[in-house]
């Protein structure tokens, strides 16, 4: 970005594009301009939008309320796919379609809240450690290394065993405790790079205070990699929630979770594959969508990686 022809060069590369001149060519508007033309981004964004609508308003797509135990009829257990039950019924005679839709909410909540907690905690500590350096940095870095040494599944099992209850918030906490060091490292590295840039020295010479330099000059220039990694992590957190629920330490009945549904259906899988396959399919699509989004965002924010 060292020359003034960058915006026009970029437009040309995208073959014609729009005739509108790029007016504010900030990193973010440039990235947005770039993103809107990527099939990868459009595909994942549409998928995520659909999943979000399902998560927020599952009632729009089904009249069955799976949270109400009366919706299940034991006599109709393991029915195949039909007009009445699109995805069939499970071991307890509950409608798999409705349960899969209602399961989206917990996955999204765990994924989003874990991402927010890790980005804020890891990002803030990383910002401080990278900016202050010295003893503060050493202290934080050693602490994160302790966390890196804990195998994540074992760590999460242990934390959830201590809580004795598995719900959305304890799962979020367990995942966040183990995941923030990664965000920390990425933020710290980005801050150290940004800190030595001339504009930070210039800001100091022109009288900016330390907090101002940290939040106004360094943070906006260091936040891009954290956003990328957080987007990709969102998908893996959703998968991790399913994994923990499958193992019986995550969400528990009567909460609905894809991992829990897979776990419940696995013993009668050959007899009735639908109760396992459909939540697994939704899970895979959701995780895939977020990872694809992360990839697209990374490409847009860091053209050099392409």
């Amino acid at each position: 970005m060292s020359d003034t022809i960058a915006p026009s060069a970029r437009r040309r590369k995208h073959g014609g594009g729009t005739a509108k001149p790029p007016k504010a060519a900030s990193l973010w508007s440039d990235a947005w301009h770039d993103l809107r033309r990527r099939p990868l981004f459009i595909g994942s964004a549409v998928l995520i939008a659909v999943i979000l609508v399902i998560a927020v308003f599952p009632g729009l797509f089904t009249s069955v309320d799976p949270l109400n135990a009366a919706s299940c009829e034991l006599a109709k257990a393991r029915q195949p796919m039909s007009g009445a039950h699109f995805f069939g019924t499970d071991n307890l005679g509950c409608d798999v379609y409705a349960r899969t839709l209602y399961g989206a909410r917990n996955s999204i909540v765990v994924g989003l809240s874990t991402t927010i907690v890790t980005a804020v905690v890891g990002g803030l500590f990383g910002l401080v450690a990278g900016f202050k350096g010295g003893a503060v940095d050493t202290l934080f870095s050693r602490i994160t290394e302790i966390f890196f040494a804990i195998p994540s599944i074992l760590g999460a099992l242990l934390i959830l065993a201590v809580f004795r209850t598995g719900n959305v918030w304890t799962v979020t906490l367990a995942l966040a405790v183990l995941a923030w060091p990664m965000t920390f490292r990425i933020m710290r590295a980005a801050v150290i790079t940004a800190k030595s840039q001339d504009y930070v020295v210039a800001a100091r010479a022109l009288g900016a205070s330390a907090p101002r330099i940290m939040f106004r000059h360094i943070l906006p220039n260091a936040v891009a990699p954290v956003i990328v990694v957080s987007t990709i992590n969102l998908g893996t957190f959703i998968a991790a929630e399913a994994g923990l629920s499958f193992l019986g330490v995550g969400l528990r009945s009567p909460d609905i979770s894809w991992g829990l549904m897979i776990s419940d259906a696995r013993e009668r899988f050959l007899e009735a594959p639908a109760p396992l396959l459909f939540p697994a399919l939704f899970l895979s699509l959701t995780v895939l969508a977020f990872i694809m989004l992360g990839d697209a965002v990374r490409d847009a924010l860091d053209p050099k990686l392409r």
């Binding site: 990193l27 001339d198 010479a205 000059h217 220039n221």
Partner: peptide
């Protein structure tokens, strides 16, 4: 000392592109 920087004594740098923050107008 901070009162002096920028207000009483100020400085400009060799490479103005890298001395300006790329993410702000």
């Amino acid at each position: 000392r901070a009162q002096v920087r920028g207000q009483r004594i100020s400085m400009i740098f060799q490479d103005a592109l890298s001395a300006l923050n790329p993410v702000f107008t």
